[in-house]
Structure formats: C-alpha cells, structure tokens
C-alpha cells in the first residue's frame, strides 16, 4: 500500500514521516523518526517496553498504527530528560538501581511519567497495579516501586 505522510508532534517538536497503513507506531518512531529509545519487545501488547505517551495517556505503540497518530502529541523516553538533566523520575531510577539491562526501562518511565501527572500521590498498591502492565526480567520490581514513590514525593515537594 502507498505510504502516506504522517504529521504529528513528538517531544514538543513538529515532525513528519512516511508510513504505509500497516506500519506500527513503534516502528515509525524507531525507523522513520529514528527515536530508538522506544523499545520493541513482544509486539503484541504484553510486555509494555514500547509504551509512549499519546495525548497525555500512556499507550502501547506496538498496538497503534502510525497513520492513527496523525495530529497527536507524543512523548517518548527521549522527551523526558537528558543525560545531563534527568527528570525526577529518571533520577530516582538511577538512585534506587531501578534498572539493570534497561530494555524495559523506557516503557516503565513513560508509563509512570503519565501516571504521576494524573495521580501525583499514588499509593504503593496503585503503583504496583499500574506497573503490572510492564514486564521486567532482571531488576525485580521492588526498586522500581521505590523509585516511583520517591520521585512522586520529590515532584510534590518541588511544587509545594
């Protein structure tokens, strides 16, 4: 099928690229826009590695087509912070050793960034419930939950 032009905003910048209808948003971000921070794991919605924020909500980019992202505002892990200036959540992941190989991390960071924006003071149980949508096979979830709760506290304190 003929590729179409997809125009959207990614990490605050107007972007466009070519996508035939069957191109998944995850592959579009990686191969067309060269944003390889979004990782592709299971490619059927189970693992959560490809999670990005679409119009404010965390979603699986492997379960959307790029053509469906026309006109949307997307945040990927590249939009959260920089190595010199980590986001509070990224900084908490660093301090709590909430990652090991890092493959699942981008999807967890985008998910929890969206969550903390919607719910600045989640309970530990709520963090665990939301984290159930992301698989991590090496670190274990305890430091991840600790990092999210710590970041939530720091973000709230900075706003107070």
């Amino acid at each position: 099928m003929t590729p179409r032009t997809v125009k959207l905003r990614v990490n605050g910048e107007a972007r466009e690229g070519q996508a035939e209808p069957r191109l998944l948003l995850a592959d579009f971000l990686r191969h067309e826009l060269h944003l390889t921070g979004t990782h592709v794991g299971c490619e059927h919605g189970v693992c959560g590695a490809c999670t990005v924020i679409v119009d404010g909500r965390a979603m699986r980019s492997c379960l959307m087509f790029a053509v469906q992202a026309e006109g949307t505002e997307i945040t990927t892990v590249e939009g959260l912070g920089t190595p010199e200036n980590l986001s509070p959540l990224q900084d908490a992941f660093h301090r709590h050793h909430a990652l090991q190989c890092g493959f699942c991390t981008a999807g967890i960071l985008t998910t929890m960034t969206a969550l903390l924006k919607e719910e600045p003071d989640p309970t530990p149980d709520r963090v665990r419930e939301v984290l159930s949508g992301n698989l991590c096979r090496c670190t274990g979830y305890i430091p991840i939950v600790d990092a999210v709760l710590d970041a939530a506290e720091k973000i709230r304190a900075a706003k107070a």
């Binding site: 099928m1 972007r15 035939e20 067309e32 490619e43 590249e78």
Partner: peptide
C-alpha cells in the same frame, strides 16, 4: 533529543520489515 538525525540521512534497511500484512 527529539530524534532529528544529526548526520546525513540514508535509507533505512529495516523500514520495510513490518509485522502486519498489507
């Protein structure tokens, strides 16, 4: 940070490898 390629663009060899049928 926004994914803009900083060096000259080249055709991506994997761009046509997609999972769903056309």
């Amino acid at each position: 940070a926004s994914g803009r390629r900083l060096r000259a663009s080249s055709a991506n060899p994997r761009a046509d490898q997609v999972k769903p049928p056309p």
